[in-house]
Design a protein around this nucleic acid. Structure first.
Lengths: 183, 183
DNA sequence: TCGCGAACTTTACAGTGGCAAGATTGCCTC
DNA sequence: GAGGCAATCTTGCCACTGTAAAGTTCGCGA
């Protein structure tokens, strides 16, 4: 014991973000506290401020990270030759595996939504989503429908509104997404 | 002036709920404060406690009210002979017109989700949603898909992720819901 | 008329987010 | 190696929040 922690933490930023993910996954974003995060990481209550400025700053960083991860996931399945159902399934998988990130990403009232980094990441993810629909008559509408069905499924599942006993949510999501492509 | 307010407010419960809707609509549920609500209504900061017990109690009441209103809307359009697209459109309309209620309803970490009144109202709304699908092969899956697409559209719209210049969201929602019924 | 319970107020306390000023450290330059 | 500088972290503070407990006012039925 007596692991005298050094004055400089080293990876404070990363540690705070990880702790935030843990808290949000367990208690929801409403249970997030800046001081509590600092305690978990073993740092004084104002430690994180230097890296994030705000509580909203922490969530901004989380949202940015989330959109970036999502964009990478979607781009990967797309370039691997995946059709809409595959990309939609990847969307659902992301929402379930990165529940904390996902929850923050679509609550722009919680973070600095006009931050350059986050808007960039969001646009990148949006571009993949918009470009993957087959309907040529009204691409905007078709992509809205596609986004809606996978996003709705993911949201409802994470809110606990869709629980089906003993069913894998990702496979269920794939089946739901499949409903749209039978056109 | 000097409208000496009486010791007893009279309709405190209703007034607090209305104020909460106003605050959430403007600043999101993260901007909601119990003391702020009391101030807006013109009552001491502990006034609302007697009616709601908690801050979560206020949100529980709001969620209950929301699910009840939604159930009534959906039942009405159903009994008026509406098909899935009509019921789905009603769902979207509700989410947009009662944005504050809708935002709270699907954030069970914010309120007492196991409260008897709210579970009752939620089940009632759920029953209407589950019973309105045409697909006989797998009704559960079909209703999940139906719920997902309208819920996703409503959520994304309210989050500001789907803005189309000068388009009526309800009509857009109807078009999106229509994508699913072309089976 | 009286009293009882519901509705509201007052007071108090622990905890929160944000800010300012100070302490500590690694690093870069000479 | 020595000195200085900027990044990093701490301490102390303030206004504010939610919640609990005890006191005050009022409507209403016996």
């Amino acid at each position: 014991m007596t692991a005298e922690r050094p004055y400089h933490h080293g990876g404070l930023r990363r540690a705070v973000l990880d702790a935030a993910v843990e808290v949000i996954t367990e208690h929801g974003v409403s249970g997030l506290g800046l001081r509590d995060l600092a305690r978990r990481v073993g740092v004084s209550h104002a430690g994180p401020v230097h890296h994030f400025k705000d509580k909203a700053g922490v969530l901004t960083a989380l949202a940015t990270e989330g959109f970036t991860l999502l964009a990478e996931d979607l781009e990967a399945t797309r370039t691997a030759g995946g059709d809409f159902v595959e990309v939609g399934t990847a969307y659902v998988r992301f929402a379930i595996e990165h529940r904390a990130h996902f929850e923050v990403m679509f609550r722009p009232d919680l973070y600095h939504a006009d931050d350059p980094a986050v808007t960039l990441a969001r646009d990148r993810a949006g571009a993949v989503l918009a470009g993957g629909v087959a309907d040529r008559s009204d691409p905007g509408l078709a992509s809205a429908a596609a986004w809606s069905i996978v996003h709705g499924f993911a949201t409802l599942w994470n809110a606990g509104a869709l629980t089906r006993p003993g069913q894998d949510p990702v496979e269920l999501g794939r089946a739901v997404a499949g409903y749209l492509s039978r056109t």
